[in-house]
Design a protein around this nucleic acid. Structure first.
Lengths: 193, 193
DNA sequence: TAACCCATGTAAACGGTTACATGATTTC
DNA sequence: GAAATCATGTAACCGTTTACATGGGTTA
């Protein structure tokens, strides 16, 4: 049922990986719209293996710890393919910044503006990063981008989503900050009388 | 630490509510970027009361069960205001559809296109709904929209976010579906030789 | 009479994060 | 000598969902 297993299968579909490799991709990798810690990954890999969807081979390395390198099996590929187009019920979204916006008028004005300007910056930077990565993809693998089964194809799609998401988010942050600044200042606690 | 308590305080800031009322707003209400079930809300309200951030009064009703109506206390207001501009560390985003996009090239082409066209529809409908709600806000409470402490102010901001989010999401879904259709059909399992 | 709304709670299960645990090698 | 990287795991905790539980009133 869980989505994590399919996240792992998705990466293993692109080639054999160790649990450590997977935790690196899912920990750090940018434009990833999924994420998991190694403490969740190792047990899940064990479960996938018990169920016959993947298998592993131990690689002994001279200078560093041994590796368990996992490979996707036909049953794993089938499970992945089936999941890809299975019915997707809408997941409720949670976003703390948007939640804050609901009451932001009660906050200190300056701090509120600073918060949203700061967030705007963050999202603009992320957008710039994704754009750079897309540019690289387009230059290095232009032909592969039209071939759906190429790993570049999916990567390109998710990066595009990242760009759009961050661009829109940054624009909203700016609009909130601007609107807060335009609003009439709260009168300093009435001193008359 | 949890964000739920602030979600509850945010709503109670706009006026006294029962746990049931809160569960209705957080369950159903549109353009909400937070969500909780009653099984989580009732215990959290009890905790907030123990900590002196809210208080309740029982309303006995003739034809239906009694109500516990909660009101925010000054300490609760202070906690809310402080939270609003407290440092916000970036939360890792999770989105199953984007995750699916990563491997979508391996799915059945027709089913994949159908999935993304369907999702595009969903997001377009949500966008339309939010637009309608903003229009209503603008017509009924136009003057209140510039006053930050009005409940309409925050509601307007979150609806704007909703519109942008859904518009962008729908556009991305369309672009994925289009790209899938444009891609060269996978050759039927090679029959030559 | 069955299903649904009002209204409030508790218990069990699940998914995810943080912390605990070990140990060798490389870099500062 | 200290910190970071490679590599794999387990345990405790926390937030969220699903299910269990109760009971009167309204609607179909």
């Amino acid at each position: 049922m869980g989505t994590l297993r399919f996240a792992l299968l998705s990466v293993l579909e692109q080639g054999p990986r160790s649990g450590y490799d997977l935790s690196q991709t899912l920990d750090i990798r940018i434009s990833s719209f999924w994420h998991a810690k190694h403490s969740q990954i190792y047990p899940e890999l064990a479960a996938l293996e018990r169920e016959g969807l993947i298998e592993h081979e131990v690689f002994e390395q001279a200078d560093r710890p041994d590796k368990k390198v996992y490979t996707i099996k036909p049953a794993g590929h089938a499970a992945l393919v089936e999941w890809l187009t299975s019915p997707l019920e809408p997941e409720p979204k949670r976003d703390e910044l948007v939640l804050r916006a609901l009451s932001i008028g009660h906050a200190d004005r300056e701090r509120a503006v600073a918060l949203f300007r700061d967030q705007q910056q963050r999202h603009r930077q992320r957008e710039a990063l994704y754009r750079k990565l897309v540019d690289e993809l387009e230059q290095d693998h232009a032909r592969k981008l039209e071939e759906p089964t190429s790993p570049m194809f999916g990567r390109y799609l998710t990066l595009q989503r990242g760009i759009g998401y961050e661009r829109e988010y940054a624009a909203w942050c700016k609009s909130v900050a601007d609107r807060l600044e335009a609003a009439p200042r709260p009168r300093a606690a009435s001193k008359r009388r």
